[in-house]
Design a protein around this nucleic acid. Structure first.
Length: 836
RNA sequence: GCCCCCGUAGCCCAAUCGGCAGAGGCAGACGACUUAAAAUCGUCACAGUAAGGGUUCGAGUCCCUUCGGGGGCACCA
């Protein structure tokens, strides 16, 4: 490839180097992954939306992921590093609504543009495996997955309250509601009752929580915490209350069964079936009052509902329950501080020991009964303090002994909980139970640009799966279809498409008009990369066994919960179905930080937008990539105002000049080279792998700079450009830079006389003999204060060091006439003389 | 309100097990090269680790308190 007649340019020219190597790489495709006998690594970057051009955030993420992929390749692994596009979803649809663009055309044009920018950015992707989730060849397998889950009862329909944006006239996913407002238009979200499709993720709640332990140390602690919070498991008890005038009992979930003697009223969620049923059996006055209350509750936005400080509201249902432990009659109320979809949608209220119940009791003048004595008997002050919640308006959460609780009196909280569960189980009126904050995953969307749900609705309402051999069920043409949101799916208006026949008996039927949440697409895409063009199955289980799970996943912390939780869930489902042999999709996770400008996220409206294309034009791809790596720890945010891409460019030019200046021929004997420089080189070779593997990319870059500086010095004022150690060091710089700045590294490699590509040249092992220092500095302290230094043999013994140290003039002076109590020696680096 | 993470030079950041506070870079000063400038090469300066207390022969590192910054959860019974 190297043209021996080509003259070495006098100066580093990144633009020329970029276009030269891009063309060559396109031809030789160095990163196409074929299977072989080497050890494997699957390195995956979260795939992008086709949202126009690449931006600074992409630049950071793909630079970091590429360092890892390129590192493992240099280490001799067979690396799979694919890329694709998460190409269904809102961006395309928004463009269609706003500008009347065809979502299909818009999407694929954007992908092409992004692909071009991406290639220039030079990540080492296997371009032969590109996939787009909006291809029928991909979403066919979403439909297949849906049908498999439907078969197992893991996909189901239910009527439920969902988020609704009144301006966009559409349902919103939980993730599209931020702080109670629609993330797109800022309109406060409302609630609507609609029949929707769900995936039964709650069936997997325990496993999703417990398996997080396996990821400890391999995933950011922050993400693990967020997932644990999101799943939100709690342990407690279910308690059955008899209801007067009703056959069935009212079951409540509580984490504090120990306080059952203090339950003075019950509350049911107003939007629950239970409330409606209880009201139906009540007086007409109650029914009127309740209907009015329910209407009010439904008018509330998410923001209002989530405000914990808001005044409690509710209505008395004029129905009564019987406390199973003491036979007491307790009134049943309905209030919106109780949620219909948590626990059983009903609670026992213990106002003395729960702030929410207390607020409610005080507002509606309900009885308050203390059952825990929270006074600390050892503390006289607190014993005298007035703790009565009725007057302090503060519920008592503290620990203490049970009171007013019959058989529980005198027990501690833990004892009382255990005892109460025992009693309830014996009496058959309750049992140990747990509850989760996690809700089932709402996957249907009233959207055009997504995977059609492969279900047919028969005339009698029966649901019939589309037969597997009829997949993919393709989206209809957008021609004549209005994509604007109208409160129902645009597919419903595609008359020809929606009208079909029942595959069972041929009777007239309709297709399901909804499409799937795009998080379904991304929950298994890492498996599709293994054989993206296989028409016969979603993925090949044999390939999955070879490559999966993903060894290293890289992406933003924005997906800490949703995408990662969904992918974990689907992986477990596939495991249960026998398609994969692992239960976690991503063995290790790296979250890169954000790229900021002047302390805040970049945005056009703030006027602090830094365009990636401008940065690339000014400093070059390699300098931008290097800046991303050098800015600091990868998980930290980068403020572009604090970093210096021009300095990265300057450094790359400096590195490049080393290769230009080397005068020796390749394949010479390095061992004849300058020892001091060789030590720097081999110290680097020994340290860099550990640094890369612990993601200390900024430190690795600093170490390359150190090596470059030492090599420069050797050329200018040391053994000179012809010394073998100089060549060895320059080659090492090229190899190391191949992780960060592939164009410059490739150019250096060629200048040094090698064929492309440096990316596959292989890491060099450090020579252990060169890692041993000739002498080390031993610090001598007296009473912890630094007094002297000595150059010593690294193999010196403690006795030798102690003896030498005690004879040093600075030590003698410091010790003076004090007695030496002891001498601490950490050979060979430190001696500390402690006086009395 | 509860929980977690972080405060090192003017700035971005390093500092295996507790063992010389500085690897690297930015910005700065000075010098060499140059008619001059740019580029390049070289030299230099700058903090005692947010504050206070404790453990230790020895603390940036471990423990406690306070201050400052960031994040997560929050009517989930």
């Amino acid at each position: 490839m190297a043209d021996p007649n080509a003259e070495t340019p006098a100066e580093y020219d990144f633009a020329q180097i970029q276009s030269k190597w891009q063309a060559i790489w396109d031809k030789i495709e160095p990163f196409r992954t074929e299977d072989d006998s080497r050890r494997r690594k699957y390195v995956l970057d979260m795939f992008p939306y086709p949202s126009g051009d690449l931006h600074m955030g992409h630049a950071e993420a793909y630079a970091l992921g590429d360092i890892i992929a390129r590192y493992w390749r240099q280490r001799g692994f067979n690396v799979l590093h694919p890329i694709g596009w998460d190409s269904f979803g809102l961006p395309a649809e928004n463009a269609a609504i706003k500008r009347g663009a065809d979502p299909v055309k818009w999407t694929y044009e954007n992908i092409e543009q992004q692909k071009k920018s991406m290639k220039q950015y030079a990540p080492s992707f296997d371009w032969s495996r590109v996939l787009h989730t909006s291809d029928p060849g991909y979403y066919k397998w979403n439909q297949w997955l849906f049908l498999k889950m439907y078969e197992k009862g893991l996909a189901y329909r239910k009527d439920s309250w969902v988020n609704w944006c009144p301006k966009d006239q559409t349902v919103l996913a939980n993730e599209q509601v931020e702080d109670g407002v629609c993330e797109r238009c800022g309109t406060p979200a409302e609630k609507r009752k609609l029949t929707q499709w769900y995936f039964k993720i709650t069936d997997y709640a325990d496993r999703l929580l417990d398996d997080l332990d396996q990821l400890e140390g391999h995933w950011p602690a922050k993400v693990l915490t967020m997932q644990r919070n999101w799943i939100g498991r709690s342990f407690g008890a279910d308690v059955d209350f008899k209801i007067e005038g009703r056959e069935e009992v009212l079951t409540v979930y509580t984490t504090r069964p120990d306080t059952l003697f203090g339950a003075t009223f019950m509350v049911v969620a107003p939007d629950s079936d239970l409330a409606a049923e209880l009201v139906a059996g009540s007086t007409p006055e109650v029914q009127r009052a309740f209907d009015e209350y329910l209407k009010e509750v439904q008018k509330k936005t998410e923001i209002e509902r989530q405000d914990a400080g808001r005044e409690k509201t509710g209505v008395f249902l004029d129905r009564w329950a019987i406390n199973p432990v003491n036979g007491q009659r307790v009134p049943i109320w309905s209030a919106d501080y109780v949620l219909a979809d948590y626990g059983h949608g009903a609670i026992m209220a213990v106002p003395a020991h729960d702030q929410r119940d207390l607020d409610f009791a005080l507002k509606f003048d309900l009885p308050i009964k203390m059952v825990v004595d929270t006074r600390n008997s050892e503390d006289a002050d607190s014993a005298e303090e007035d703790l009565d919640p009725a007057s302090t308006r503060i519920a008592l959460h503290g620990e203490g002994r049970m009171i007013n609780s019959g058989p529980l009196d005198g027990l501690t909280k833990a004892e009382a909980i255990a005892r109460m569960i025992e009693l309830l189980e014996k009496a058959g009126t309750g049992r140990a139970a747990k509850a989760f904050r996690l809700r089932d995953w709402l996957i249907s969307r009233q959207r055009f640009w997504g995977t059609p749900i492969p279900i047919i609705h028969a005339q009698d309402g029966t649901l019939v799966p589309v037969p597997e051999d009829q997949l993919p069920l393709r989206l209809p043409s957008t021609e004549g279809l209005d994509p604007a949101p109208k409160g129902s799916s645009p597919l419903g208006a595609a008359t020809e498409w929606i009208t079909t026949k029942n595959p069972v008996d041929g009777s007239p039927a309709k297709r399901d008009p909804d499409t799937m949440d795009t998080f379904v697409d991304s929950s298994w895409y890492f498996l599709r990369f293994l054989n993206p063009n296989d028409d016969s199955r979603a993925f090949d289980p044999a390939e999955a066994e070879k490559w999966a799970p993903v060894d290293q996943y890289i992406g933003g912390v924005t997906h800490a919960i949703l995408h990662l939780l969904y992918a974990r869930f689907i992986t477990k489902v596939l495991f249960d179905m026998g398609y994969v042999k692992f239960t976690e999709p991503f063995s290790a996770l790296l979250n890169q930080g954000m790229v900021l400008m002047d302390g805040s996220a970049m945005s056009k409206s703030k006027g602090n937008l830094v365009r990636l294309s401008d940065q690339l034009a000014e400093h070059g791809v390699d300098a931008v990539r290097l800046t991303m790596a050098f800015a600091g720890p990868p998980e930290d945010d980068i403020d572009w105002a604090d970093v210096a891409p021009h300095a990265s460019a300057k450094f790359l030019a400096r590195a490049w000049r080393l290769a230009r200046d080397v005068t020796s021929a390749k394949d010479l004997d390095w061992t004849a080279g300058d020892l001091a420089l060789r030590r720097v080189t081999h110290r680097f070779l020994a340290d860099a792998p550990g640094l890369v593997e612990s993601f200390k990319f900024n430190v690795v870059v600093a170490r390359i700079m150190e090596l470059v500086n030492a090599t420069r010095k050797a050329i200018d004022s040391g053994p000179g450009a012809g010394d073998p150690a100089v060549r060895e060091a320059a080659e090492t710089v090229a190899l190391a830079l191949s992780l960060f700045s592939p164009y410059t590294a490739e150019e250096m490699w060629e200048l040094l006389g090698y064929e492309p590509t440096v990316a596959l040249a292989g890491w060099r092992e450090a020579d252990p003999e060169l890692l041993v220092e000739e002498s080390v500095v031993c610090v001598v302290q007296v009473d912890g204060k630094l007094r002297e230094r000595m150059d010593v043999d690294p193999n010196s013994t403690a006795e030798e060091l102690e003896k030498a140290a005690l004879g040093l003039p600075g030590v003698v002076r410091s010790v003076a006439d004090r007695k030496i109590a002891k001498v601490i020696v950490r050979a060979p680096k430190l001696v500390n003389i402690v006086t009395e």
